[in-house]
Structures are given as structure tokens and as C-alpha cells.
Amino acid sequence: MTDAVHDAGGKIVMQLWHVGRMSHVSLQENGAAPVAPSAIRAGGNVFLQEGFVPPSTPRALGTDEIAGVIDDYRQASRRAKEAGFDGVEVHAANGYLLEQFLRDSTNLREDHYGGSIENRARLTLEVVEAVASVWGPDRIGLRLSPFSTAIGDTPLDSTPLETHSYLARRLGEIGLAYLHVVEGQLHGDSSDEAFDVGALRAAFDGAYIANNGYDRQRAIDATSSGHADMVAFGKLFIGNPDLAERLRANAPLFDAPASSYFGSGAEGYTEFTPA
């Protein structure tokens, strides 16, 4: 796959993520409980072969286990490099493990991975350092969603801008290539003034990628105004695998049925008739 992308003149980055509490015992080795910073069950649903089910109650990771989680990221980074990827993106958003550690709503730990902002950001920074030992920081990005509760009904951090601005500043000091931010509520409106992410952009010394609900004109406005260096598109690619060309030509976009995006069969997801 990476060879095909390179042959077409493209670049491809692997996203590394650990779902943490957003899992189910049937997906875990020997039916074990999922792991999380604290034993707080997530809301929402996870997808199994038989359909959607609520997540299982997780167990809190022991302090002595965290080094193993960090090493998993290091090993995944090596495999991504061996597979020919051009870089990696560390997923610290959307209610998954690293975000579960970042937010004081889901992290009730009393060791040096819980409590203060510095402690709650520690795991993410240690993961980034492990990944950087394989790739170097200039081939690493990181994804954040400071204001979203959409996945797992994950409550916001009590001070989301302060928490994430601290992390953004530290990531800039490390020299990460980019910060990829879900602006606002995932699957919602990213233009609300309550979701101002200017502080993150100011704190991070690197490229800023905006994401969430952008269309062609808003993306042009965001980059021309200096709000963002780049804009990421996700869902639109499902119905428009040639999205980049359509955006260049300002061509109509196919409105794929969103009801089929997650957890359904091929119809409307990989099988559809685009305009």
C-alpha cells in the first residue's frame, strides 16, 4: 500500500492509537477487562461482529504497566517505518487512551500520571518521546480534540484550554511536525466561538492542521487567513475517494449516507454510486 502511494507521488502517515476504555472484553486477550487510567466505564457503543454494544468496565492500569504501553507505541512505530510509511501521527483525541489520561474527568489517579496537568500529560509526552526515538520528532504529528465529548460520552477536562495549551507548548519544544486539532464538538459545529483554539495554535511551535466539518470554502478561508496551515478532511473521503481532485476543480461532492459510515456492511460505505 505504501509503495502504491509513493508510486503515485504521494505521502502516507500511519496513525497510532490505543482505545483504552472504549473496548469490550470480547476484543481483549482471554476476555480481560480493557485498560484505562481509572476504572470508569465509557458511554456510547463499540462495534462487535454481532453489532453495537456498550463498552465494558475497564480496570485501572498499574503504574508498573505503563512502561509496557509506551513500549507498544515504540514497537508500532518501528513496524510503521518498516512498512514504508513517511511518518506517524499519535492519536491523543476522541476519547481514547491518551485523552483519557489527559482529562481530569476520566483520570482519577493519585500517582505521577494523575492529578496535575503536568502529571496527566506525562503519558502522552512519554509516548511521543518513544515514537521520536524511532522517527525523530520532525516525522511525528499528534491529534487532539480538546472540546469534544462525542466518543464514549467523555466529559470535558475542567480546564481544557489550559490543559491542552500546556501539552501543545511541550510538543512544540520537542519539535513535532504538526498538531492536528478537532475543533469543537466531533460530528458537530467547529465554528462556534466557544471552541476557540487560538491558544493552542499560539502555544505550539509547528504546523497546525484544522479538522472537523470543513468544506472547500471554509478550508480556503482558514488557510488564507492564517487560522491554519492545513485542513484535514475525513468523512468526505468515504463518498468521494477522489476528493482532492474534486476540491481542486470545485466539483460537486457525493453525499454518501452517513448512517452507513460506522458499523454497517459495504452498502453505502465501500459500495455506492457516486455522482
Rank of each mutant, 00 (worst) to 15 (best):
A4H: 08
H6F: 10
A8R: 12
G10I: 03
Q15K: 06
L16G: 09
W17C: 03
H18A: 15
H18C: 14
G20P: 02
L27M: 15
A32F: 01
S38Y: 04
I40P: 02
R41T: 14
G44Q: 09
G44N: 10
G44A: 13
G44I: 14
F47Y: 13
L48G: 07
L48V: 02
F52R: 14
P55T: 02
S56V: 13
R59P: 07
R59Y: 09
L61C: 14
L61N: 03
I70M: 08
D71A: 10
D71M: 02
D72L: 08
Y73K: 00
Y73T: 03
Q75Y: 01
Q75L: 14
A76Y: 02
S77K: 10
R78M: 11
G84F: 05
G84E: 01
V88A: 15
E89C: 13
H91C: 08
A93I: 03
A93Y: 00
A93G: 02
G95F: 01
L98V: 07
E99S: 06
Q100S: 00
R103K: 14
D104L: 08
D104N: 14
N107K: 11
N107Q: 12
D111Q: 12
G115F: 02
G115T: 05
N119F: 11
A121Q: 00
L125E: 04
V128L: 11
V128C: 06
A132L: 04
S133W: 07
V134M: 06
W135Y: 05
D138P: 00
R139W: 01
I140K: 05
G141N: 03
R143H: 00
L144D: 03
S145Q: 01
F147A: 08
T149H: 07
A150W: 11
A150K: 05
I151Q: 09
I151G: 04
T154I: 13
T154P: 02
P155F: 09
L156K: 04
S158C: 05
T159N: 15
L161W: 04
L161F: 08
S165K: 13
S165T: 13
A168V: 02
L171H: 04
L171T: 11
Y178Q: 04
L179K: 08
V181Q: 01
V182K: 03
Q185G: 06
L186C: 11
H187N: 13
H187K: 10
G188A: 10
G188W: 00
E193M: 11
A194R: 15
D196G: 10
A199Q: 05
L200C: 11
A202N: 15
A203M: 07
D205A: 15
Y208W: 15
G213P: 09
R216Y: 09
R216L: 14
R218D: 10
A222K: 02
T223E: 11
S224P: 00
H227S: 12
A228C: 08
M230V: 11
L236M: 07
F237K: 00
D242Q: 09
D242G: 13
A244N: 09
E245Q: 15
L247T: 01
A249G: 01
A249L: 12
A249C: 06
P252I: 15
L253C: 09
A256N: 10
P257Q: 12
A258Q: 11
G263M: 04
Y269F: 13
T270K: 06
E271H: 14
T273Q: 14
P274T: 01
A275H: 10
